[in-house]
């Protein structure tokens, strides 16, 4: 028997709420908000409370998917990135940089979001960048 409570930070948004993940024999079975965390003081929102549910979800994507002949097909990261880069270039060349828009995530780090907008503005040349947390 291996039962642990692992202190970690919520991945759902930038607030940074702390909680313990209950891990029994290698499986995450529950979330318990951390009472001594100065951020959330033992409280969570509904998304935080359910973090343990998505971790082991069978519905999670584990590989990039590319639509081939109308079917989503698992491909390697190299193939997915090559395809994306080629299409972005083609669209930009044909219709201009502002024909493209980029959506980033509240679930990645601040640094990754910074890099992303830099990529949009400096590499692609558009200000069309937004994120999923515009609620």
């Amino acid at each position: 028997m291996d039962y642990r409570t692992v202190l970690t930070t919520c991945t759902h948004c930038g607030c940074g709420c702390n909680f313990y993940l209950e891990v029994l024999d290698g499986r995450v079975i529950g979330t318990i908000p951390c009472k001594t965390s100065p951020i959330n003081e033992g409280k969570l929102c509904i998304k935080g409370w359910n973090v343990h549910e998505f971790i082991q979800s069978k519905k999670r994507l584990t590989q990039p998917l590319l639509r081939k002949n109308g079917e989503l097909t698992e491909v390697s990261w190299d193939e997915a990135l090559d395809f994306t880069a080629r299409r972005l270039k083609e669209i930009k060349d044909a219709h201009g940089a502002d024909s493209l828009a980029f959506l980033t995530s509240a679930r990645v780090t601040n640094e990754e979001n910074y890099l992303f907008q830099k990529f949009c503005r400096a590499a692609i040349g558009t200000n069309n960048v937004d994120h999923c947390a515009r609620l």
């Binding site: 028997m1 202190l7 313990y20 318990i32 001594t36």
Partner: peptide, 12 residues
């Protein structure tokens, strides 16, 4: 008491 916090814990 760990990581500067108080945590529920199974002592074995």
């Amino acid at each position: 008491s760990r990581n500067g916090h108080i945590a529920p814990h199974l002592f074995v």
